[in-house]
């Protein structure tokens, strides 16, 4: 089941290099012109793949120009890897076309489902962690990696409910997926904080249980706060606020385990002016820089 025994020759030749171990931000149309005008110093930009699955127009115009100047991560939100049905091959084709066009340094998707019975529900929905889901998710990731001719990263989810049918913990499930499919892990530290708060788990124990050797990128974002029916905190993965202090602290701890990693500042709600996001990215860069001498020392 391990990918890559006979990689497509052309795909191998065109395989892009990896993202730098620096901070990047999500690319938003609101910022297209500012980015080209001010050319900020940033490690990379990340796009949501589905937004660029259109024939032409402004999105491609600007992405083409920005991609010429920056490293690029493509992050899918619509493959429904955790879904019950077979993967949407037409969607996979669109993804292959997009990746072929922009040659991103990284491609990632979610441990979640969003389509069912032909309807796209536009949310990252949870599935039970059992043998059936595990088999399905691995099969889907195999297919994605085969079709795209590259390794993908899988992102740990933010969830609000758990399933009685689950037979393993989330971290164990992810460990199995990574081991069987050979995919990498996109460690979303905000999702760790949100899910662990929502399910009464210890975030550091959770991270310890993940296959940290496979981490290829980190996501950071802000959340919203609510309470559940018992009055316990319920955090919502809103991407609508600055990264919380608790998440920065968890990020520092995680980097101690995995070393410097490309780190995305995500903001999808209440998007501020570009300099606000750049300041958050610089904060992440400073944390990464503190680690770099250690990493270099370890490598030497």
């Amino acid at each position: 089941m391990i990918l890559g025994s006979t990689p497509n020759r052309r795909a191998a030749a065109a395989r892009p290099r990896s993202l730098p171990a620096r901070a990047g931000i999500g690319l938003k149309p609101e910022h297209f012109r500012d980015i080209l005008d001010t050319a900020p110093d940033l490690g990379f930009f990340e796009i949501h793949a589905e937004n660029y699955m259109v024939d032409g127009g402004a999105f491609h115009h600007y992405l083409t120009r920005i991609r010429e100047r920056y490293a690029l991560s493509i992050h899918g939100v619509g493959l429904s890897i955790g879904g019950e049905g077979p993967l949407d091959e037409a969607h996979l084709d669109r993804l292959a076309t997009l990746l072929g066009r922009y040659q991103p340094e990284s491609f990632s998707e979610h441990l979640a489902w969003s389509s069912h019975g032909g309807a796209f529900l536009n949310d990252l929905l949870p599935a039970p962690y059992d043998a059936a889901t595990l088999a399905r998710v691995c099969e889907h990731i195999d297919r994605v990696q085969e079709r795209l001719g590259r390794r993908m990263l899988l992102e740990n989810p933010a969830t609000y409910v758990e399933f009685a049918a689950s037979t393993m913990a989330e971290a164990e499930f992810i460990t199995q997926v990574v081991r069987r499919s050979g995919c990498g892990l996109l460690l979303d530290v905000n999702n760790v904080h949100v899910s662990c708060t929502n399910h009464g788990r210890d975030a550091r124990d959770y991270i310890d249980a993940l296959p940290l050797y496979a981490v290829g990128q980190v996501h950071l974002a802000g959340f919203a706060e609510d309470t559940d029916a018992a009055g316990a905190p319920l955090l919502i993965d809103s991407h609508g606020a600055p990264v919380a202090e608790a998440v920065w602290a968890l990020y520092c701890d995680a980097l101690d385990r995995v070393g410097p990693m490309p780190t995305l500042i995500e903001r999808d709600n209440d998007i501020p002016a570009l300099p606000v996001l750049l300041a958050e990215a610089r904060h992440a860069d400073r944390i990464l820089e503190r680690l770099l001498p250690i990493a270099r020392g370890a490598a030497a």
Binding site: V161, E162, D228
Partner: peptide, 17 residues
């Protein structure tokens, strides 16, 4: 089939989705 760690009714959590 939905459960919560603290035994709270899952309805409000499901409503987030």
């Amino acid at each position: 089939g939905l459960v919560t760690w603290n035994g709270s009714a899952p309805d409000k959590r499901f409503a987030v989705y």
